[in-house]
Design a protein around this nucleic acid. Structure first.
Length: 368
DNA sequence: TCTGGGGTCCTAGGACCC
DNA sequence: TCTGGGGTCCTAGGACCC
């Protein structure tokens, strides 16, 4: 063990959250410069009359109240005449994303954890996190001509939330010191991991602000949300959360394929054909890996909007495509044949690879 | 207004065993 | 005939994130 020098002792571990500004729209504008300044809306196959939602809207489009997750039909109604609708081009975004991540990984002394196409955490030992952030933004701009914003925090929760205050093209520091000053009077909904449902349930207990949540009785939270989530939400009120940035490659625990049909499926034959195809495609992603498929799940949305999921245990090697597809078809036989099917999905849940799962789970959904 | 597609993790309740 | 308490596994469903 080497002794830490005086200098390293005075440094501390910072978490930076890097988020590309309007990533998908920015990539599109980059390769079609004539779109600069126009409202750009990317989603589905680019046809605003189809069943699809907005993946990203440029800042110009957001001025008209258009945002991600919004149905394309609604966006079309709000959009001005000069708006441009474009199809989603996964390959293009993946390629730019890879350049961004490689650039950030190349910064001296950083640990990188990818959490999405356009987002990552950087862990770094430093006394000047703003200086590191400035260099990171410069490096990304030089490599891709794209802008990003950076949140600086003493853990992932605070870094992630800080980014919102830095946007666009800026940075913001959020730590234990200024947490309540910045967040105390804001809605619980602004916390990462609290969505509309939990916000509503908290409000039912008179908990509306971040400060309210921090002050809330732990027993009451546990009674409402269970032992794990109750305590997790309580900590969230203080901005407490994990601070370890993990650069281990991410390994998926499941793969799925789902499709919303432009015309609802109405016969059992149509449903069976669709399930057969979706199951096979979901299995494609598992087939390359030497693992077991443990469960098969079916998701169905009946028109107009009634979603159900159900599954069954399975133990099929990732070489047994026929067995998996057959299991999915067996599940499909329990669908209601009299109802119109609007969406179908098939999910394969896998065992972790040999060596087990080394990552401690946290209740924050997605990759953290 | 009408709601994508890809994921992750948590909880409740029933089944089953001792 | 009525019935404990604890544990684990399984399934359905919920909620959230990018």
């Amino acid at each position: 063990m080497t002794q830490p020098t005086a200098q390293t002792r005075s440094m501390s571990l910072w978490v930076l959250h890097v988020d590309m500004d309007q990533f998908i729209a920015a990539v599109e504008v980059l390769r079609q410069p004539e779109l600069v300044g126009r409202p750009v809306i990317v989603g589905g196959n680019g046809d605003p009359t189809e069943r699809a939602v907005v993946a990203t809207a440029s800042y110009e489009a957001r001025e008209f109240g258009i945002g991600s997750g919004m149905p394309m039909k609604v966006a079309a109604r709000k959009a001005p005449d000069d708006a441009v609708f474009l199809p989603v081009d996964h390959a293009a975004y993946e390629s730019v994303s890879a350049t961004v991540m490689a650039t950030l990984r190349g910064l001296p002394g950083v640990t990188l954890e990818i959490i999405g196409w356009d987002e990552c955490f950087l862990g770094v030992m430093t006394d000047e996190p703003e200086e590191v952030a400035r260099r990171a933004r410069q490096a990304v701009l030089a490599a891709t001509a794209l802008h990003c914003s950076i949140g600086i925090g003493d853990n992932k929760i605070r870094a992630k939330i800080a980014t919102g205050f830095g946007k666009p093209r800026g940075m913001f520091r959020l730590t234990e010191q200024n947490w309540f000053e910045v967040m105390g009077e804001r809605s619980t909904r602004e916390l990462w991991g609290i969505g509309p449902r939990v916000q509503k349930r908290l409000a039912g207990h008179g908990i509306r602000t971040v400060r309210n949540l921090a002050d809330a009785d732990r027993g009451e939270l546990v009674a409402e949300f269970g032992p794990r989530m109750g305590l997790w939400y309580g900590d969230l009120g203080f901005g407490r959360g994990p601070a370890v940035v993990d650069d281990k490659p991410w390994v998926a625990r499941s793969h799925s394929r789902e499709t919303t049909y432009q015309q609802n499926l109405t016969t059992t034959e149509q449903v069976a054909a669709a399930v057969r195809e979706l199951a096979s495609r979901a299995f494609d992603d598992c087939a390359a890996e030497d693992r077991l498929v443990e469960r098969v799940h079916l998701k169905v949305r009946y028109a107009p909007f009634d979603t159900r999921t159900f599954g069954r245990k399975l133990s099929a090697p990732t070489s047994d495509r026929g067995g998996f597809v057959h299991a999915a078809l067996r599940l499909a036989s329990s669908l209601d044949p009299a109802r119109e099917v609007r969406l179908l999905g098939v999910r394969a849940e896998m065992t972790m690879p040999a060596g087990g799962d080394p990552v401690e789970r946290t209740p924050v959904r997605g990759r953290i």
